[in-house]
Write a protein that binds this DNA or RNA. Structure first.
Lengths: 160, 160
DNA sequence: AATGGTAGTACCATAATCGTACTATCTCCA
DNA sequence: TGGAGATAGTACGATTATGGTACTACCATT
């Protein structure tokens, strides 16, 4: 009669495995200076830029932390800040040309991960897994299926 | 044509939701001083104690980080270190009486989470989800199904 | 007994986290 | 129309987490 590993912890294992692979792929492609936390933030940036608070929300961190990370990414030349025409308070964090270079690498590795996982589970079970995970994510965070969730939200380091 | 949220990121969302609930439950029960990282470490402690390197491995952190966390937990009275009879080098990190107090709280919340998720997916799909997650975890970390994986490994903060 | 490996630890530099708090701007209603 | 209250960004600062290098004590195996 053993205690089972919780589902949440199993998700942690899967998530970390994927994240490790993406960060490793980035490092191998020459982006060795991108940290895990930075990658998680980058993952939330949309093509036409995203506000700091939105990034913080997506990465589940307070905006002060997001600010520090964006500052680092900006100093490293991956992102830039442009004014948000629709709101004078806001600024949009956007990928620079240099920052856009990480996209193909991250996406490629992410695609490989999905393929590997599908190799383990098969097409049908993989689809069921994604559907279930999606529903759970929605139930935990209803605000997730906001209009833009299905929109241009292009993950950067292969995530989000 | 929108980019899908990666499976890894969906797992992140689920994991964080679960972790947040457990940490919140602990805080509400009076264990407000337990941090996220500490909880993840506590989750890996077996009933009869666990070595530092094993804890580090389970939480996916280097042993130096694990050491710092254990030091903190020891100072706070949650764990103690006892010699490992089978190996003079090793010491076992074990829950104190005070530390064992967090167990019921964490397990209760974890149970509630599993129930909630099952409420969303239904029994059959929940079982399929766990099975799939488990297989992916195994494929990413084959060393996971070590003998003790099915043994007394009792998660502490509801996780493992 | 020698050799190579492992567990724990120390020291240290950096990164991440997050509280409090302030400014500029927006929104909406009285 | 004029605030009042909410929100975006930022600053400052304290604490925690992370992870490199390296050392000691102990184990295992030849």
């Amino acid at each position: 009669m053993e205690r089972e590993i919780s589902s949440g912890w199993l998700m942690f294992i899967g998530f970390r495995a994927a994240e490790d692979r993406i960060v490793a792929a980035l490092a191998e492609a020459g982006y060795a200076d991108i940290t895990r936390a930075q990658a998680r933030l980058l993952a939330g940036i949309d093509v036409d830029g995203t506000r700091l608070v939105v990034l913080a929300d997506r990465a589940r961190i307070p905006k002060q932390t997001a600010l520090a990370l964006v500052n680092g990414l900006e100093a490293a030349g991956f992102v830039e800040r442009v004014p948000d025409a629709s709101d004078g308070r806001a600024r949009l964090v956007r990928l620079t040309a240099h920052g856009r270079g990480v996209l193909p690498v991250a996406i490629a590795e992410e695609t490989r991960i999905e393929a590997d996982w599908q190799g383990v589970l098969g097409v049908r079970r993989m689809r069921a897994l994604r559907k279930a995970l999606w529903e759970l994510a929605l139930s935990a965070d209803p605000h997730l299926h906001s209009p833009d969730a299905a929109q241009g939200a292009n993950a950067v380091p292969g995530e989000r």
